[in-house]
Nucleic acid binder design. Structure first.
Lengths: 119, 119
DNA sequence: CGACCTAACTTACGACTCGTAAGCGACCGT
DNA sequence: ACGGTCGCTTACGAGTCGTAAGTTAGGTCG
Protein backbone atom coordinates (compact mmCIF):
# COMPACT_ATOMS: atom_id res chain seq x y z
CA UNK A 1 0.00 0.00 0.00
CA UNK A 2 2.74 2.40 0.82
CA UNK A 3 5.11 1.00 -1.76
CA UNK A 4 3.02 2.02 -4.70
CA UNK A 5 5.34 2.59 -7.61
CA UNK A 6 2.73 3.85 -10.00
CA UNK A 7 1.03 6.94 -8.73
CA UNK A 8 -1.21 8.26 -11.42
CA UNK A 9 -2.42 11.51 -10.02
CA UNK A 10 -3.20 11.33 -6.35
CA UNK A 11 -4.65 14.64 -5.35
CA UNK A 12 -5.34 13.99 -1.74
CA UNK A 13 -1.98 12.96 -0.43
CA UNK A 14 0.72 15.32 0.57
CA UNK A 15 3.15 16.05 -2.24
CA UNK A 16 6.53 17.42 -1.15
CA UNK A 17 7.28 18.75 -4.62
CA UNK A 18 4.09 20.77 -4.71
CA UNK A 19 4.65 21.88 -1.16
CA UNK A 20 8.14 23.15 -1.87
CA UNK A 21 6.91 24.99 -4.94
CA UNK A 22 3.91 26.64 -3.33
CA UNK A 23 5.86 27.68 -0.26
CA UNK A 24 8.51 29.19 -2.51
CA UNK A 25 6.41 31.12 -4.97
CA UNK A 26 3.87 31.87 -2.28
CA UNK A 27 6.30 33.81 -0.12
CA UNK A 28 5.37 37.41 0.44
CA UNK A 29 5.73 39.47 -2.78
CA UNK A 30 7.21 36.58 -4.76
CA UNK A 31 4.05 36.09 -6.79
CA UNK A 32 3.96 39.74 -7.75
CA UNK A 33 7.66 39.73 -8.59
CA UNK A 34 7.34 36.70 -10.85
CA UNK A 35 4.28 38.11 -12.59
CA UNK A 36 6.09 41.36 -13.22
CA UNK A 37 9.03 39.46 -14.67
CA UNK A 38 6.92 37.61 -17.22
CA UNK A 39 7.07 40.61 -19.51
CA UNK A 40 10.81 40.24 -19.94
CA UNK A 41 13.99 41.53 -18.40
CA UNK A 42 13.56 44.01 -15.61
CA UNK A 43 15.76 46.09 -13.37
CA UNK A 44 15.73 46.23 -9.62
CA UNK A 45 14.24 49.70 -9.52
CA UNK A 46 11.60 48.74 -12.09
CA UNK A 47 10.28 46.07 -9.76
CA UNK A 48 10.27 48.38 -6.77
CA UNK A 49 8.37 50.95 -8.82
CA UNK A 50 5.96 48.43 -10.31
CA UNK A 51 4.95 46.72 -7.10
CA UNK A 52 3.43 49.08 -4.56
CA UNK A 53 4.43 48.24 -1.02
CA UNK A 54 7.46 46.20 -1.93
CA UNK A 55 10.64 47.44 -0.28
CA UNK A 56 14.14 47.04 -1.64
CA UNK A 57 15.14 44.88 1.31
CA UNK A 58 12.53 42.23 0.59
CA UNK A 59 13.03 42.46 -3.17
CA UNK A 60 16.71 41.77 -2.72
CA UNK A 61 15.92 38.82 -0.49
CA UNK A 62 13.32 37.35 -2.87
CA UNK A 63 15.53 37.76 -5.93
CA UNK A 64 18.31 35.89 -4.17
CA UNK A 65 15.95 33.05 -3.34
CA UNK A 66 14.65 32.92 -6.90
CA UNK A 67 18.19 32.98 -8.26
CA UNK A 68 19.19 30.16 -5.91
CA UNK A 69 16.24 28.14 -7.20
CA UNK A 70 17.25 28.70 -10.80
CA UNK A 71 14.15 30.69 -11.58
CA UNK A 72 15.80 34.00 -12.40
CA UNK A 73 19.24 35.03 -13.61
CA UNK A 74 21.10 38.17 -12.76
CA UNK A 75 23.03 40.09 -15.41
CA UNK A 76 25.43 42.82 -14.37
CA UNK A 77 26.32 45.62 -16.76
CA UNK A 78 29.22 47.61 -15.29
CA UNK A 79 28.03 50.90 -16.71
CA UNK A 80 27.52 54.03 -14.73
CA UNK A 81 25.61 53.74 -12.62
CA UNK A 82 25.64 49.96 -12.45
CA UNK A 83 22.79 48.43 -14.38
CA UNK A 84 21.54 45.03 -13.33
CA UNK A 85 18.90 43.10 -15.19
CA UNK A 86 16.93 40.16 -13.95
CA UNK A 87 15.50 37.67 -16.39
CA UNK A 88 13.41 34.54 -15.91
CA UNK A 89 15.09 31.28 -16.83
CA UNK A 90 13.29 28.55 -18.74
CA UNK A 91 12.22 27.19 -15.38
CA UNK A 92 10.91 30.60 -14.40
CA UNK A 93 9.05 31.08 -17.67
CA UNK A 94 7.41 27.72 -17.10
CA UNK A 95 5.62 29.27 -14.16
CA UNK A 96 3.60 31.40 -16.54
CA UNK A 97 0.82 28.82 -16.76
CA UNK A 98 0.51 28.64 -12.99
CA UNK A 99 0.52 32.42 -12.64
CA UNK A 100 -2.12 32.77 -15.32
CA UNK A 101 -4.24 30.14 -13.62
CA UNK A 102 -4.14 32.09 -10.37
CA UNK A 103 -4.85 35.32 -12.24
CA UNK A 104 -7.84 33.76 -13.97
CA UNK A 105 -9.18 32.52 -10.64
CA UNK A 106 -8.64 35.90 -9.01
CA UNK A 107 -10.48 37.70 -11.79
CA UNK A 108 -13.31 35.20 -11.91
CA UNK A 109 -13.87 35.10 -8.17
CA UNK A 110 -13.00 38.60 -7.12
CA UNK A 111 -14.85 39.40 -3.95
CA UNK A 112 -17.16 42.23 -4.96
CA UNK A 113 -19.33 41.76 -1.92
CA UNK A 114 -20.23 38.44 -0.35
CA UNK A 115 -21.19 36.02 -3.11
CA UNK A 116 -21.67 33.20 -0.62
CA UNK A 117 -25.39 33.11 -1.28
CA UNK A 118 -25.39 30.03 -3.46
CA UNK A 119 -24.15 27.83 -0.61
CA UNK B 1 -16.22 35.08 -22.00
CA UNK B 2 -13.82 37.94 -21.74
CA UNK B 3 -15.16 41.42 -21.37
CA UNK B 4 -12.90 42.78 -24.04
CA UNK B 5 -12.59 46.49 -23.65
CA UNK B 6 -9.18 47.91 -24.32
CA UNK B 7 -6.71 45.73 -22.48
CA UNK B 8 -5.96 42.50 -24.22
CA UNK B 9 -3.60 40.79 -21.82
CA UNK B 10 -1.34 43.05 -19.86
CA UNK B 11 0.97 40.82 -17.95
CA UNK B 12 3.51 43.28 -16.76
CA UNK B 13 1.49 45.67 -14.63
CA UNK B 14 0.66 45.09 -11.06
CA UNK B 15 -2.72 43.46 -10.61
CA UNK B 16 -4.27 43.87 -7.16
CA UNK B 17 -6.64 40.95 -7.72
CA UNK B 18 -3.80 38.58 -8.52
CA UNK B 19 -1.81 39.98 -5.64
CA UNK B 20 -4.57 39.41 -3.13
CA UNK B 21 -5.07 35.88 -4.41
CA UNK B 22 -1.43 34.86 -4.41
CA UNK B 23 -0.80 36.35 -0.99
CA UNK B 24 -3.81 34.50 0.35
CA UNK B 25 -3.25 31.04 -1.07
CA UNK B 26 0.49 31.46 -0.75
CA UNK B 27 0.41 31.83 3.02
CA UNK B 28 2.30 29.19 4.89
CA UNK B 29 0.57 25.79 4.63
CA UNK B 30 -2.43 27.18 2.78
CA UNK B 31 -1.40 25.59 -0.49
CA UNK B 32 -1.05 22.18 1.10
CA UNK B 33 -4.36 22.58 2.91
CA UNK B 34 -6.21 23.49 -0.27
CA UNK B 35 -4.62 20.65 -2.21
CA UNK B 36 -5.61 18.19 0.50
CA UNK B 37 -9.18 19.50 0.39
CA UNK B 38 -9.56 18.92 -3.34
CA UNK B 39 -10.37 15.29 -2.66
CA UNK B 40 -13.56 16.21 -0.84
CA UNK B 41 -14.72 16.92 2.65
CA UNK B 42 -12.12 16.54 5.33
CA UNK B 43 -11.93 16.79 9.08
CA UNK B 44 -9.60 18.90 11.13
CA UNK B 45 -7.58 15.93 12.31
CA UNK B 46 -7.37 14.53 8.79
CA UNK B 47 -5.58 17.65 7.64
CA UNK B 48 -3.20 17.64 10.59
CA UNK B 49 -2.39 14.00 9.87
CA UNK B 50 -2.09 14.48 6.12
CA UNK B 51 0.24 17.47 6.18
CA UNK B 52 3.50 16.80 8.00
CA UNK B 53 4.70 19.77 9.98
CA UNK B 54 1.36 21.52 10.13
CA UNK B 55 0.27 22.29 13.67
CA UNK B 56 -3.31 22.60 14.85
CA UNK B 57 -2.81 26.23 15.74
CA UNK B 58 -1.88 27.25 12.23
CA UNK B 59 -4.48 24.99 10.67
CA UNK B 60 -7.17 26.65 12.73
CA UNK B 61 -5.91 30.05 11.68
CA UNK B 62 -5.72 29.16 7.99
CA UNK B 63 -9.16 27.56 7.95
CA UNK B 64 -10.64 30.70 9.45
CA UNK B 65 -9.01 32.82 6.77
CA UNK B 66 -10.23 30.51 4.01
CA UNK B 67 -13.72 30.50 5.49
CA UNK B 68 -13.70 34.29 5.66
CA UNK B 69 -12.74 34.37 1.98
CA UNK B 70 -15.57 32.06 1.04
CA UNK B 71 -13.22 29.32 -0.09
CA UNK B 72 -14.20 26.69 2.46
CA UNK B 73 -17.30 26.00 4.51
CA UNK B 74 -17.42 24.53 7.97
CA UNK B 75 -20.06 21.96 8.88
CA UNK B 76 -20.57 21.04 12.51
CA UNK B 77 -22.04 17.69 13.46
CA UNK B 78 -22.82 17.73 17.19
CA UNK B 79 -22.02 14.08 17.65
CA UNK B 80 -19.64 12.74 20.21
CA UNK B 81 -16.96 13.72 19.98
CA UNK B 82 -17.84 16.73 17.88
CA UNK B 83 -17.27 16.09 14.20
CA UNK B 84 -16.47 19.02 12.01
CA UNK B 85 -16.09 18.78 8.27
CA UNK B 86 -14.52 21.30 5.98
CA UNK B 87 -15.54 21.45 2.35
CA UNK B 88 -14.42 23.61 -0.53
CA UNK B 89 -17.02 25.97 -1.92
CA UNK B 90 -17.47 26.49 -5.62
CA UNK B 91 -14.94 29.27 -5.34
CA UNK B 92 -12.55 26.92 -3.58
CA UNK B 93 -13.01 24.17 -6.14
CA UNK B 94 -12.23 26.70 -8.85
CA UNK B 95 -8.70 26.80 -7.46
CA UNK B 96 -8.12 23.27 -8.70
CA UNK B 97 -6.76 24.47 -12.03
CA UNK B 98 -4.27 26.78 -10.35
CA UNK B 99 -3.16 24.09 -7.92
CA UNK B 100 -2.72 21.59 -10.72
CA UNK B 101 -0.70 24.12 -12.69
CA UNK B 102 1.66 24.57 -9.76
CA UNK B 103 1.84 20.80 -9.26
CA UNK B 104 2.68 20.27 -12.91
CA UNK B 105 5.41 22.87 -12.74
CA UNK B 106 6.81 21.38 -9.54
CA UNK B 107 6.93 17.91 -11.05
CA UNK B 108 8.40 19.10 -14.32
CA UNK B 109 11.07 21.28 -12.77
CA UNK B 110 11.97 19.38 -9.64
CA UNK B 111 15.29 20.69 -8.43
CA UNK B 112 17.57 17.60 -8.49
CA UNK B 113 19.09 17.97 -11.95
CA UNK B 114 18.71 20.07 -15.05
CA UNK B 115 16.15 18.43 -17.32
CA UNK B 116 18.62 18.10 -20.17
CA UNK B 117 17.38 14.61 -20.92
CA UNK B 118 13.62 15.00 -20.79
CA UNK B 119 13.26 17.89 -23.17
C1' DC C 1 38.17 69.31 -5.33
C1' DG C 2 34.62 68.18 -2.62
C1' DA C 3 29.53 68.09 -1.83
C1' DC C 4 25.91 65.71 -3.95
C1' DC C 5 23.60 62.20 -7.11
C1' DT C 6 22.31 57.38 -8.84
C1' DA C 7 21.51 52.12 -8.70
C1' DA C 8 21.57 48.30 -6.11
C1' DC C 9 22.15 46.61 -2.15
C1' DT C 10 23.07 45.83 3.21
C1' DT C 11 22.36 46.73 8.18
C1' DA C 12 19.57 47.81 12.18
C1' DC C 13 15.62 47.35 14.78
C1' DG C 14 10.77 47.21 16.14
C1' DA C 15 6.46 44.82 14.68
C1' DC C 16 4.15 41.08 13.07
C1' DT C 17 3.78 35.89 12.17
C1' DC C 18 5.01 31.15 13.12
C1' DG C 19 6.35 26.80 15.78
C1' DT C 20 5.89 24.24 19.98
C1' DA C 21 3.61 23.09 23.87
C1' DA C 22 0.09 23.27 27.02
C1' DG C 23 -4.79 23.99 28.42
C1' DC C 24 -9.99 23.92 27.70
C1' DG C 25 -14.87 22.07 27.25
C1' DA C 26 -18.10 18.69 26.01
C1' DC C 27 -18.78 14.00 26.01
C1' DC C 28 -17.83 8.98 26.80
C1' DG C 29 -15.98 4.29 28.22
C1' DT C 30 -14.19 2.01 32.46
C1' DA D 1 -14.09 9.85 39.20
C1' DC D 2 -10.39 9.38 35.86
C1' DG D 3 -8.44 9.33 31.68
C1' DG D 4 -9.26 9.68 26.41
C1' DT D 5 -10.96 12.10 21.91
C1' DC D 6 -11.89 16.18 18.89
C1' DG D 7 -11.44 20.80 17.82
C1' DC D 8 -9.82 24.61 19.16
C1' DT D 9 -7.42 28.57 22.14
C1' DT D 10 -3.66 30.71 24.91
C1' DA D 11 1.25 31.56 25.93
C1' DC D 12 5.70 32.51 24.58
C1' DG D 13 10.24 32.15 22.27
C1' DA D 14 11.92 32.02 17.44
C1' DG D 15 11.62 33.49 12.89
C1' DT D 16 10.08 36.82 9.12
C1' DC D 17 8.72 41.35 7.60
C1' DG D 18 8.37 46.63 7.22
C1' DT D 19 10.68 51.03 7.57
C1' DA D 20 14.49 53.66 7.55
C1' DA D 21 19.25 54.52 7.29
C1' DG D 22 23.96 53.39 5.66
C1' DT D 23 27.28 51.53 1.97
C1' DT D 24 29.88 51.04 -2.52
C1' DA D 25 31.41 52.62 -6.90
C1' DG D 26 31.37 55.74 -9.96
C1' DG D 27 29.74 60.41 -12.15
C1' DT D 28 27.94 65.49 -12.19
C1' DC D 29 27.93 70.09 -10.40
C1' DG D 30 29.70 74.32 -8.27
Amino acid sequence: MATVTTMDHEESVFCPLFHHAVELIGRRWTGAILKAMLSGKVRFSDLVAAIPGLSDRLLSERLKELEAEGIVVRHVYPETPVRIEYVLTEKGLALEAAIHAVTAWAEAWATPAQPSLSR
